[in-house]
Write a protein that binds this DNA or RNA. Structure first.
Lengths: 194, 194
DNA sequence: GTCTATAATACGATAGAC
DNA sequence: GTCTATCGTATTATAGAC
């Protein structure tokens, strides 16, 4: 892996752990095993390097979500797979983390990929929910757009609760809660209840 | 308001906007209109002042939540009141914000009030949900602990989505989603469906 | 491409006058 | 209690040698 690539992956890791404000060029260089001259040769500065790292995060997150949400199985199963196959609960979401950073919010170039990725995720989840409705899996009362935001929200909020507790238990607790409610929206469950 | 009090409220505001890492003693002093000597007279340093500010945040959040959740009305109504009467969606949660800060997580004194407050909130929400179940308002299938984590999660995640979008729309979208699903858990709704 | 040297500014805290 | 002066370190870059 060349210096440019190592700089990007090191920046990704540090942004994830410490955010934009908490990440210094020096720390990036040390983690990448690269000198100052090299960094400023490949990138114009901290924000330029951060942009490359954020775009890389966005690509990876989309690829993971798309893999789970376009897999085989029903709409409920695919959403379940997306929410439960989370390996880094205590590290949280690479992009959700940046949302809290005032310097990211203030910089349109850095903010845009974050905004676009969450927008894409909400639309993608809404599509899956609408598919489930069309196939008769989910009740017609369910609003795909609202519930998509709820699912994306529970996931992001689950990370917050997990970090607060220092344990991934609250994340999976919150996910069990939403999945249980979603399961009760399925036609089968409603039929069993009546 | 004396200098000590102004220092605490200024620190609260800056922690909310910029987090612990992004908040400097100098910025606190300027916002409070207080000199360096005054700050170091009243507080041992940045972390000591942050502790006072975080404890104040925790008190205020508990007071707000308790006010909504112990009000009159049914369990659903009280939860709805808690989730919808949020005035500062784009500013997010004062404590949820700190969850992302590595220096908060690493410092047990600063981390404890954050942990305890979210723990309290989840238990308080679970109590309200269990009350609703006992009174026959909610279906017995609903797991109060799981759904409590879901509700706290949607709220925290809603802030994340709102900041990403630069609008409070995703927050209220996510809240509508969870409230809609919760409403369908009520006995009346299930009776109407069957 | 990568290195070292250097710079201007900010951070977090201490000292001591008043 | 509050002020100004000062300190040692870190930040974010630039310059120029190699």
């Amino acid at each position: 892996m060349d210096a440019r690539e190592r700089l990007i992956t090191s920046t990704q890791a540090l942004l994830w752990e410490r955010g934009y404000v908490g990440t210094s060029p020096k720390a990036i260089q040390q983690r990448a095993g690269v000198g100052q001259g090299s960094m400023y040769h490949h990138f114009a500065g901290k924000s330029d390097l951060a942009l490359a790292a954020i775009q890389r995060c966005a690509e990876q997150i989309r690829a993971f979500a798309e893999d789970r949400l376009s897999g085989s199985g029903g709409a409920y199963e695919r959403i379940e797979s997306f929410l439960l196959n989370e390996r880094d609960v205590l590290r949280g979401c690479q992009l959700g983390r940046l949302t809290q950073d005032p310097e990211i919010v203030a910089n349109p170039d850095l903010h845009r990929p974050v905004d676009e990725t969450f927008d894409w995720l909400r639309r993608r989840l809404a599509t899956v929910l609408a598919e489930g409705q069309a196939s008769g899996e989910f009740a017609p009362q369910l609003d795909p757009e609202d519930v998509a935001a709820t699912i994306a929200g529970v996931m992001q909020g689950g990370y917050v609760l997990a970090k607060a507790a220092g344990s991934d238990e609250p994340y999976f607790c919150a996910i069990r809660g939403i999945l249980g409610m979603l399961a009760l929206q399925t036609i089968q469950a409603r039929r069993a209840l009546s």
